[in-house]
């Protein structure tokens, strides 16, 4: 019988070993502290979505789809479209995830990515109004984990912007006032020029690392996720139990700035 008693968290011994390695500036997979695993992106993975992407960071994999429909605007923004980001941590993607209503991790993942996109004003929601006070576009960004080997957060953030960038608005029948699903126009979703990226830094002992594997993420004491767009920070969330010194916080911001430039270069061709 294989893997009867699957270990659901990283054993202490492995955690100790990871920390000891870090003292020598080493990681299990030979990476530097501020080095990402290989990123692979595929776009247009769904024929039914208005835009979609698959992002792999090492063995971690997420898929992201953009769907659109029309609805009445909210009273406080009668001339603006709406954005909704949800994330599901599929039981398929890890023995740790269970079916049922979303738990905290999935809720946080969706909300952190949502705020990054919203606050950076990536989507020009005022251009998604069909008829003021009556009808606007809704944009749904749905994130699904396919394999969790750590750092789903950053994979989701990359997937969301790439999926948005490749999306085409469905045709809309003005007379019938309905969306013609399956018929995409050649209109892109109106996006700002600068593309925001949500990236995380984790603290293990006195070390700050990016792109943790599952084991590293398990022993991470603190996570800071920052949404940054061309050097401007648009959102930030600290997670985890441990405190950070101001000095560490500054270091984290420097790391994010450096890494965001590198990642932007890597994924640029999908953002054009």
């Amino acid at each position: 019988m294989n893997k009867m008693e699957k270990v659901l968290t990283t054993p202490d011994l492995t955690g100790e070993r990871i920390k000891r390695y870090l003292l020598d500036g080493k990681r299990f997979d030979q990476r530097k502290e501020d080095e990402f695993r290989e990123i692979a992106i595929e776009t247009g993975i769904s024929k039914k979505a208005e835009g979609s992407a698959r992002v792999k960071i090492g063995k971690t994999e997420v898929i992201v789809g953009v769907k659109m429909d029309t609805a009445e605007p909210y009273p406080d923004s009668p001339d603006k479209g709406n954005l909704m980001v949800t994330a599901e941590l599929l039981p398929l993607s890890s023995p740790r995830f269970e079916a049922g209503p979303p738990r905290f991790e999935a809720i946080e993942l969706g909300r952190v990515i949502d705020r990054g996109i919203r606050e950076s004003k990536l989507i020009q929601l005022d251009k998604l109004c069909i008829k003021e006070g009556e009808k606007v576009w809704n944009i749904f960004i749905d994130i699904y984990s396919i394999n969790d080997d750590g750092n789903l957060m950053d994979a989701a953030g990359i997937g969301a912007v790439v999926a948005l960038k490749t999306a085409r608005i469905p045709k809309y029948d003005d007379k019938e006032e309905k969306v013609l699903y399956g018929e995409l126009s050649d209109k892109e979703i109106p996006l700002s020029k600068e593309i925001p990226l949500s990236l995380s830094v984790h603290k293990i002992g006195d070390h700050l690392i990016v792109d943790p594997t599952r084991e590293e993420e398990d022993i991470s004491e603190t996570r800071v996720t920052v949404c940054i767009s061309n050097g401007t920070i648009h959102s930030m969330q600290k997670g985890g139990e441990k405190e950070l010194s101001i000095e560490e916080m500054e270091k984290i911001l420097n790391i994010i700035e450096k890494v965001s430039k590198e990642i932007t270069l890597k994924i640029n061709k999908y953002l054009k």
Partner: peptide, 30 residues
Amino acid sequence: KIMHPQHKQNPEKGTLRCSYNMISFSVTDR
């Protein structure tokens, strides 16, 4: 793997548990 909760364990034979789910963007109407 061991069945939890325990009262669902069947000492005669194991249990196959399937779940089917459609991704929200697998169809045109989300």
